[in-house]
Design a protein around this nucleic acid. Structure first.
Length: 220
DNA sequence: ACCCAGGGTCATA
DNA sequence: TATGACCATGGG
């Protein structure tokens, strides 16, 4: 039965199970961009602390970040982990924003142009670029992350080993261009991915999954 | 004590 | 194209 289940059906079930997620946390495009870099392989709770530190220290604008001393910047974002690496990435991001005349001007670029420029910034890879495109610039780009691979591999709909671009194309072609749908879908996947599934079918999706640990325990 | 989190870069084969 | 080392804090 899982073989014929569509990506749209999974979305409907996730939405029914968890409700709207209201992503992305953060009230400006700039904050979303900073958060996208800081949350790389890092729990969001740690990112919140780093962002709070930056705001409290008044290092909260592209220029302020560029002008702050590297050591100081690193110490401010320390809670988000990889602080030396991320301090450099944050600078690269801010240098790009300033060089392009600010976030407002960037919004005038096409999605393809924006994506190419984002990927050229040191420290921004496919997923971070797509987070920014979808949540900061509201472009119809489906974000693929580790949770996406895990959840849909368990459903038997992908192997999980596909290249990033290949998976992105699969989701986008299946769902059609829809910013609001992509926005909610990715947030729901992350929410579901956090479930450790120890409790038997922890939700409707686990009931469908071929390889979900909780769904594998054969009932008596 | 151990595991992993809303990845990416760089070196190597 | 595809592995592997490396980066580092904080919560479970």
């Amino acid at each position: 039965m899982p073989v014929s289940v569509s990506f749209r059906v999974i979305y409907d079930r996730l939405l029914a199970d968890y409700g709207p997620r209201h992503w992305w946390p953060g009230d400006s495009a700039f904050e979303i961009m900073v958060g996208a870099v800081l949350t790389q392989n890092t729990a969001w709770t740690n990112v919140e602390k780093a962002i709070a530190n930056l705001k409290r220290a008044r290092a909260w604008s592209p220029r302020a970040i560029i002008e702050s001393h590297p050591r100081r910047l690193a110490s401010l974002i320390r809670p988000s982990g990889y602080y030396n690496v991320k301090a450099k990435r944050l600078r690269a991001l801010c240098r790009w924003i300033v060089a392009r005349g600010g976030v407002r001007r960037l919004a005038a670029l096409t999605t393809d142009e924006l994506r190419a420029e984002l990927l050229a910034v040191h420290g921004i890879g496919p997923e971070t670029a797509d987070d920014i495109l979808l949540y900061a610039f509201e472009r119809p780009v489906f974000v693929i992350d580790a949770y996406t691979r895990r959840v849909f591999a368990r459903l038997g709909m992908i192997t999980g080993q596909e290249p990033y671009e290949s998976l992105r194309a699969t989701f986008e072609e299946s769902l059609g261009e829809d910013v609001a749908l992509y926005n909610e879908y990715h947030a729901l996947i992350v929410r579901h991915g956090k479930d450790t599934c120890r409790k038997r079918p922890c939700c409707e999706i686990c009931g469908l999954a071929l390889n979900c640990p909780s769904a594998q325990q054969a009932p008596p």
